[in-house]
């Protein structure tokens, strides 16, 4: 694939796969840092007691934290964030403290200079004991379009 910084449209074809790019394990400190940087101060992500009152066993990451990881990953695969033209995520399950976030992607099509990519971010970890979660599951499903030079 060569140096991703110099990736060109000719170097990309449908079916190409990227990843795993792994982030975390996510800590409570990471969640607090993201809350401060992003302005998402919903206490459900930071305050154990508040989270429990809503029925969650503990705090969990705001979806945009693993979404940020996924945007980072797709940016790295295609030579930098400046090439992104579209980024979309759907949140399918929560990411808990202690989870790793594992990002993968696949090129679906190449039209002109636009590469269309589907992506996944999976949570990998034990999760809160009370929930008895699978040790790995899809947390985010994404799509991106990247414009690459000739």
């Amino acid at each position: 694939m060569g140096d991703p910084q110099n990736i060109t449209i000719e170097g990309v074809s449908p079916g190409m796969e990227f990843g795993e790019a792994s982030y975390g394990p996510v800590t409570r400190e990471d969640i607090v840092a993201y809350a401060r940087a992003s302005g998402d101060d919903n206490p459900i992500h930071q305050d154990e007691e508040y989270a429990r009152r809503t029925g969650a066993p503990t705090v969990f990451a705001m979806g945009m934290l693993p979404a940020g990881y996924l945007a980072h990953a797709v940016s790295d695969w295609f030579g930098g964030p400046q090439h992104l033209r579209r980024f979309k995520v759907r949140f399918t399950t929560r990411v808990w403290p202690g989870d790793e976030v594992v990002c993968t992607g696949r090129v679906e099509s190449v039209e002109g200079n636009i590469v269309r990519v589907t992506m996944q971010a999976r949570r990998r970890g034990d999760g809160p004991e009370a929930l008895n979660l699978p040790s790995e599951e899809t947390a985010l499903v994404g799509e991106a379009e990247v414009e690459l030079p000739e």
């Binding site: 809503t54 945009m64 400046q82 992104l84 033209r85 579209r86 979309k88 995520v89 759907r90 949140f91």
Partner: peptide, 16 residues
């Protein structure tokens, strides 16, 4: 907001 989830997020870029 007691029963609101963030379902999706999308960005369309001309540039960053």
């Amino acid at each position: 907001y007691g029963r609101v989830l963030h379902g999706e997020q999308e960005f369309i870029y001309k540039r960053l």
